[in-house]
Design a protein around this nucleic acid. Structure first.
Lengths: 214, 214
DNA sequence: TCACAAACATGAGAAATCCTCACATTTGCA
DNA sequence: TGCAAATGTGAGGATTTCTCATGTTTGTGA
């Protein structure tokens, strides 16, 4: 999980200018310090507000050194994200490795979700990196308000169809179903059309099962 | 849906400097042109690459006029997003208004999802605004790859538990369940803790039902 | 041990972009 | 018609990312 090669994500098909991978002990330590500094700053103010100069200063290196190992600002965020995903993947693989029956899956999955949830709650950096809808708070709030409003329409229907159900549970279900729908759409449009169609169909089935037959 | 007040989202508790709402016919038309120009540019290159100078030029106004009605760059994106949500909310309300029974819900919901899906596919601006995980392509790809890798572990388990199920369906289910989990987490951490816990629990139930008893 | 190439370090400043502001023009109204 | 409010303008201030010419350190082969 350590010592992976120099970071160089790309964007828009533009290949980021190549950067050197640290080969000496000294520079490897410095790169660690840079990432640690970035991590602190992201936790404090978000990756958008993180300034390259501040990262360099906090890491005790010059701005030039920063750019020696990271082609641009996003590369730093990307490097941190990559570590998190690598760590969590290992964790997930371990948890699911020895599942043998349905009950085992139920337990393993449940624990996994709890771990992920706690991780998200505890790690501001993860929260920032995967925060969806940009780091833009105004947009995120608009999206949330929209989801709630839309869920409200669903709740009204559900209350009519199942007047004896727990209102709070209905609300939770409707909100979740709606938000997941948006996630499913986003996923569907970022894969090829055929798989996208399958995913949307699967979501529909899943959501309706939940809405109708709780 | 037209003629709403001047746009001023805020960020980080910082109140964006107030901007005038267009009160004359002339300026209302100009604001429309600004939004139209922004829309074109976002569709072409994404909101991140959109330049304020370009928006002004394309709208045939000066950069100063742009800032007369929008406090900053994000406000333009926000204004477009707000229109989309208002439109889709009206559409959703209409579709769910007269649902009377389970079959009606099934139909209405199914149609709604189709409409949304087509909208996402057809509207690059919507895609860009709600693209999740920032406009950063590298991050989005990392997230996708991560989700696929994680789904793979789930698929392995499912194949063992249900060897006679359709492999493609299993893959779709696992991928979707995983991606929705991340969506559920993001949602859970952006509401208060109590509701977050409920949402995570509901997701767990939903996912397990899907994974175990398809 | 020494010389030398490759790796590493530095920070002034080039380039790009957002946004402001002082001033000019137009509009609506008494 | 005259005036205040609304609107329009664009040069340039402020900020930030990233480059590059130059200097320093490290490892290595003779």
């Amino acid at each position: 999980m350590e010592g992976r090669s120099a970071v160089s994500p790309q964007q828009d098909g533009q290949v980021a200018s190549p950067r050197r991978a640290p080969s000496q002990q000294r520079s490897r330590e410095r790169v660690e310090r840079m990432l640690a500094a970035a991590s602190v700053l992201i936790a404090e103010q978000g990756s958008d507000a993180m300034r390259m100069g501040e990262v360099a200063e906090r890491a005790g290196v010059s701005i030039g050194s920063l750019y020696q190992f990271f082609p641009d600002k996003r590369a730093i965020v990307w490097a941190l994200a990559e570590r998190y995903t690598a760590e969590s993947q290992a964790c997930i693989a371990a948890a699911l490795k020895d599942v043998g029956d349905a009950e085992g899956l139920r337990q393993a999955f449940s624990e996994l979700v709890d771990i992920y949830y706690r991780l998200f709650l505890a790690e501001p950096v993860m929260r920032d990196i995967w925060s969806g809808t940009q780091a833009d708070k105004a947009l995120r709030e608009l999206e949330l308000a929209d989801s709630r409003a839309n869920a409200e329409f669903l709740i009204a229907v559900l209350r009519r169809l199942r007047p004896d159900a727990d209102p709070v549970a209905l609300e939770t279900t409707a909100f979740l179903v709606w938000q997941m729908g948006e996630a499913a759409m986003r996923l569907a449009i970022s894969v090829d059309r055929e798989e996208g169609d399958r995913l949307v169909a699967a979501y529909k089935r899943m959501a309706l099962r939940e809405l109708l037959a709780e």
